[in-house]
């Protein structure tokens, strides 16, 4: 008797949820972005034509996310999944792709877009051994911190959007043209503003600033992590202080999702400021879109470099 009631309850719930799901699926294109920067980019290129959900926020480490039920549900409804690739999401994305039963977003399908495939990756390890920490075989995946990469990815993404939703292809192409022009203009401005940063010695928490450093000509003299993905211990930090004495840096860079403890400790001991950069869209209150992301990043770097 109880069991029957349970089943009835379940049936009603299923029907109600089905109704909800159908009403939610109104926009032309359902997009699941693995990181906020790609959600913002889809927003720039598709506008109202796509409904975008970001799997992570700026305070979450994209390496360390679980394949939560809500993400499986989002992957199930997605026409397109936009991710960084290069093994950044290896701990959760494969599960979303398989468990959701959505054939459109499997690797190799048009519905799976890998941003890293559109750019040149740096720091490709010569040796793959976990003794070296959490190394990414394909190279450093944090590609979006260089606006030149964003421009390349935007081009590839606009094309992909057009392939998946041919009816909107001209819209995506037009929006991309506008975006590319604005982006080129902003990039030139950033390049000018960043002149004083050239050659600036910095300490990073994790290698997630390598592309930014390459773009701006920052000189990364040390990582807080003893090995990629391994949190520094007190002993590692002591050693780092020694190293910084011989080779001083001007500031410590950290992302919002990284613990402030280690960087604050180093800052206190060495007298350098800690600069929290937004890292991605939503990382700071002012970094509300991709343009503001770089505006704010430069503003913070220049303020600390003075």
């Amino acid at each position: 008797m109880n069991i029957q009631k349970c089943m009835q309850c379940l049936l009603v719930t299923v029907c109600a949820l089905w109704g909800l799901g159908v009403s939610a699926a109104q926009a032309a294109l359902q997009v699941l972005a693995c990181e906020p920067e790609w959600a913002a980019l889809v927003g720039e290129l598709a506008g109202d034509r796509a409904q975008v959900v970001s799997a992570t926020n700026a305070r979450q480490d994209p390496h360390r996310i679980e394949a939560r039920p809500s993400l499986i549900a989002a992957a199930r409804r997605a026409d397109l999944v936009v991710c960084t690739g290069a093994d950044l999401e290896t701990g959760w994305l494969p599960l979303l792709q398989r468990e959701s039963g959505n054939a459109r977003i499997l690797p190799g399908q048009p519905g799976y877009f890998e941003a890293a495939a559109a750019v040149r990756l740096i720091e490709r390890p010569a040796v793959l051994d976990r003794v070296l920490g959490d190394v990414h075989a394909a190279g450093n995946p944090h590609v979006h911190t260089d606006p030149r990469n964003v421009a390349l990815i935007a081009k590839a993404l606009a094309q992909r959007l057009g392939e998946i939703d041919p009816a909107g292809a001209t819209i995506y192409a037009d929006r991309h043209r506008t975006f590319a022009a604005r982006w080129a203009e902003a990039s030139a401005r950033w390049q000018r503003q960043a002149q004083p940063l050239r050659g600036l010695p910095v300490v990073v928490y994790h290698r997630n600033w390598s592309y930014l450093a390459e773009w701006l000509g920052l000189r990364v003299v040390a990582d807080l992590e003893p090995k990629p993905g391994i949190e520094p211990s007190a002993r590692d930090l002591e050693r780092l202080i020694e190293q910084l004495r011989a080779q001083p840096a001007r500031m410590v860079l950290r992302a919002p999702y990284q613990s402030p403890r280690a960087s604050d400790w180093i800052a206190q001991r060495s007298g350098m400021p800690v600069v929290m950069l937004p890292y991605t869209v939503g990382g700071t209150a002012t970094a509300r879109d991709l343009f503001e992301l770089f505006d704010d990043t430069l503003r913070r770097l220049l303020a600390a470099a003075q």
């Binding site: 299923v14 909800l20 159908v22 039920p69 549900a73 409804r77």
Partner: peptide, 13 residues
């Protein structure tokens, strides 16, 4: 045999 519902809330049968 399993089926994930196309709903906002995750439902799998």
């Amino acid at each position: 045999l399993s089926w994930v519902a196309p709903t906002e809330t995750y439902l799998e049968l």
